[in-house]
């Protein structure tokens, strides 16, 4: 049987390629930005931090591309024929997407870190001034920062597992239900997706308000994280069951 690490290595390759390509574009944009700075303002305006900290939409594109690749892998003969359980296959797909995205963020952070290091003498003065001007910062702001970072990671994984859930339901419905019933199920899925998106937006809005106004206790934050984690576990379990029983490889 194929082990998890062997599956991970084989599923990593196309995703590593995607991230390397996106990082190439990122570095290209940074270099072009630096050249633009020098042309317009001379060497005095040279700022690696400014050139590297723009988002350029690359984060979103990388996320979507990794999602598409992961979903393709789940229904590809190449991976589904491998002698590993559906649970291992699913988790290898999910974890390679996660690690690939972290790799993308880490390289970007490294470039920004270098930019930050180069401009630290000036920035440290500005930060000191900013800190003395900020009086309304919640007392537990470090805890909130950790909470937000963890929540972003969990929401990212949640997004992937929800995309898989919808993909697997539609794959199953398309394969086994007659045309009329397919339409009904697809409409129901569309309504549920819209409802889930609205519910998530409302929840995030409420959370943002509570965090900014210091109205969220440590207990509440942990509860939110646990809810996000439990949601992932439940959805992953459903996805693995669907994959084992109904989701067919397509090509």
């Amino acid at each position: 049987m194929t082990s998890f690490s062997e599956l991970f290595r084989s599923m990593w390759k196309p995703k590593g390629h995607i991230v390397n390509l996106m990082l190439f574009f990122y570095l290209l944009i940074v270099v072009i930005s630096l050249i633009g700075q020098v042309i317009h303002g001379g060497m005095g305006d040279f700022s690696l931090l400014k050139a590297s900290s723009g988002d350029f939409g690359l984060g979103v594109v990388t996320f979507i591309w990794l999602t598409v690749q992961t979903e393709r892998d789940y229904v590809s003969d190449t991976y589904r024929l491998m002698p590993a359980s559906e649970a291992k296959q699913y988790l290898a797909g999910l974890s390679t997407a996660f690690v690939a995205y972290l790799y993308f963020v880490a390289v970007r952070s490294l470039v920004m870190g270098v930019g930050l290091g180069l401009e630290w003498p000036r920035l440290s003065v500005e930060l000191d001034q900013l800190r003395s001007n900020l009086t309304g910062l919640p007392h537990n702001w470090q805890m909130i920062a950790v909470f937000v970072a963890l929540l972003v990671l969990l929401l990212m994984i949640n997004a992937w597992v929800y995309v898989s859930l919808i993909h697997f339901i539609l794959n199953t419905v398309s394969a086994f239900l007659p045309a009329g019933q397919q339409k009904v199920v697809k409409v129901v899925v569309a309504i549920l997706v819209v409802a889930a998106t609205i519910a998530l937006s409302v929840w995030l809005g409420r959370l943002q308000y509570q965090l900014l106004h210091g109205a969220s206790s440590t207990v509440n934050m942990w509860v939110d994280l646990v809810v996000a984690l439990v949601t992932i576990v439940v959805t992953v379990t459903i996805n693995i069951c669907l994959m084992r029983k109904w989701v067919e490889a397509k090509y």
């Binding site: 194929t2 062997e6 599956l7 084989s10 196309p14 390629h17 003969d77 190449t78 590993a84 090509y251």
Partner: peptide
């Protein structure tokens, strides 16, 4: 299998390596 799970630009030796890794 049709090998459509591999990147079109993959070298055949890379595909062989994947097979050697996942099939005991």
């Amino acid at each position: 299998e049709s090998l459509r799970g591999f990147r079109p630009g993959s070298k055949l030796s890379q595909i062989r390596d994947v097979y050697a890794t996942v099939y005991p």
